[in-house]
């Protein structure tokens, strides 16, 4: 991972926290059970890879329901009310050396197979 000549022991201290925010990525076309299994397998392989290299710090999937409160009037409405491709499906906290590396690590995420996205945000207090 780290090929800088004297970077090895600095690495742990230099790790920063990032949040992956997953949106969409839900298939809408007809899929066969085999294709669904294959897609799930990719998710677990990807998350497992991040876990084994100590990068995955936590995270949770979200249900597609809930409520939103808006404005001074605090109007409560049902549901997140966005198109499914913009719906936040879950988040994950990871450790990476830089935004560049965090971006690199997200490339393998299977959310892109069905039109989803990953937003990558550094935490304000970001030491991992």
């Amino acid at each position: 991972m780290d090929d800088r000549p004297n970077g090895t022991d600095k690495r742990d201290r230099n790790m920063l926290k990032y949040m992956y925010i997953f949106r969409g990525g839900v298939a809408t076309e007809p899929l066969s059970p085999t294709e669904m299994q294959a897609h799930m397998t990719k998710w677990y392989a990807w998350a497992d890879g991040l876990g084994r290299s100590g990068r995955r710090l936590g995270g949770e999937p979200l249900q597609n329901t809930g409520a939103t409160i808006r404005g001074r009037e605090r109007v409560v409405s049902d549901g997140p009310y966005v198109e499914s491709k913009d719906l936040v499906a879950g988040f994950m906290l990871i450790a990476a050396e830089s935004l560049e590396e965090a971006t690199q690590l997200a490339q393998g995420c299977p959310v892109f197979e069905y039109g989803g996205s990953v937003e990558i945000r550094p935490l304000l207090e970001g030491r991992a």
């Binding site: 839900v26 298939a27 899929l31 059970p33 897609h39 799930m40 998350a47 499906a89 879950g90």
Partner: peptide, 15 residues
């Protein structure tokens, strides 16, 4: 059944 499997695929991605 297809809908239920698709829903599972959506809900089980992370765990």
């Amino acid at each position: 059944v297809h809908d239920a499997l698709l829903a599972a695929m959506d809900a089980w991605r992370f765990e």
